[in-house]
């Protein structure tokens, strides 16, 4: 039985990562180690949740750097499972999950093949298999291609990065502006997508890797921040969305957490994005009785997990700001020793 778990995504700011809500879901039953990328990540200082915090090398440095760091952490804390919660680090953890297993560190992640199936640029093909609508999307890598795509789709269009960021452009001038804004930060290719009129609804789920959806909760964001992050939300019972989640897991044998982002429109449901991890609102699911992080840990341990997609609708989620005071010495210790 797994006792010691490491997890990343400790940024609990206005652009929150999923690590803290995942940790809140697990803190009662497990010893938790925080994997941080920055001493400014607020959860670095949540001593009532994390036994230890380690600063990690950026994923762009590659697996050798990660492996060396994890060897130290394994030696110090005997971590048995890692739950990576950030998009940028997932490809590395997915690619090297067997090497991690050999180090005595389990993960519960999809295969690279399945991970790539839900890539934004591949979603058109996957949506056909799932028999669900998907807004027409064109991949672009130059301004010329951008202009052609905008002409084909007609304004307004969504200009999206392949990993992060999406903006609605109403004319070619703003489309080009967003093209440079996103590409300078996140590179190429970009995606130009037709806009869909409807209401966004979301689902967090967990697949067992054998085609079975073991847990899920669906919600609607009632208010969001300027970055589009949930501020208030409500649980909903949307049969078509739940069926889409079941179909996705069955078609892909998805192993691990995921989030469906969909638009409910007059002519049915459109799939917009599939994130290969827990969303930062995952504690909402825990609080309404579907503790997906705990189910993931049990699956990773090889335990049987009973399906749980039963939750009350009409439960309200309220995010709020808070603060606490700690000693600067902790900040300086984390910078200098890379541990806390």
């Amino acid at each position: 039985m797994i006792k010691n778990i490491a997890l990343s995504g400790l940024n609990a700011t206005d652009n929150p990562a999923p690590g803290y809500p995942v940790a809140k879901s697990l803190k009662e039953d497990y010893s938790l180690i925080g994997l941080s990328y920055d001493p400014n990540e607020p959860a670095d200082y949540f001593e009532n949740i994390f036994q230890k915090i380690y600063l990690m090398p950026y994923p762009s440095l590659g697996f050798n750097e990660l492996k060396t760091r994890l060897e130290t952490i394994k030696r110090d804390t005997d971590i048995e499972l890692i739950i990576p919660n950030l998009d940028a680090e997932l490809p590395l953890y997915i690619k090297y999950q067997e090497e991690l297993e050999q180090m005595g560190i389990k993960t519960f992640l999809p295969t690279m093949e399945h991970f790539e199936l839900r890539d934004k640029s591949q979603l058109t093909n996957l949506s056909k298999k799932l028999n669900i609508k998907h807004p027409k999307t064109i991949e672009v890598s130059s301004v010329k291609e951008l202009e052609e795509a905008c002409e084909e789709l007609s304004f307004p269009v969504m200009v999206k990065g392949n990993y992060y960021k999406a903006y609605k452009a109403h004319n070619i001038k703003s489309a080009i502006e967003y093209f440079y804004k996103i590409s300078s930060e996140w590179g190429f290719p970009l995606l130009v997508q037709e806009t869909i009129e409807g209401e966004e609804i979301n689902l967090v789920g967990l697949g067992d890797g054998k085609g079975h959806l073991v847990g899920a909760v669906s919600i609607k964001k009632l208010t969001t921040t300027e970055l589009g992050k949930i501020w208030t939300g409500i649980t909903i019972e949307h049969k078509e969305l739940m069926q889409t989640a079941k179909d996705f897991v069955e078609q892909t044998n998805w192993r691990g957490a995921f989030e469906l982002e969909c638009m409910a429109c007059q002519d049915g449901l459109y799939i917009i994005e599939i994130n290969p991890r827990f969303p930062a609102w995952v504690y909402f699911a825990t609080a309404v009785g579907v503790n997906l992080p705990q189910m993931l840990v049990k699956l990773a341990s090889g335990e049987d997990v009973k399906e749980n997609i039963d939750f009350p609708d009409g439960k309200l989620y309220v995010r709020y700001t808070d603060e606490f005071i700690t000693d600067f010495s902790k900040f300086s210790k984390l910078i200098t020793t890379k541990e806390l």
Binding site: E199, I201, K220, G233, I234
Partner: peptide, 8 residues
């Protein structure tokens, strides 16, 4: 009046 399928 609450619409449980859309949260409105």
């Amino acid at each position: 009046a609450f619409d449980p399928s859309m949260g409105n």
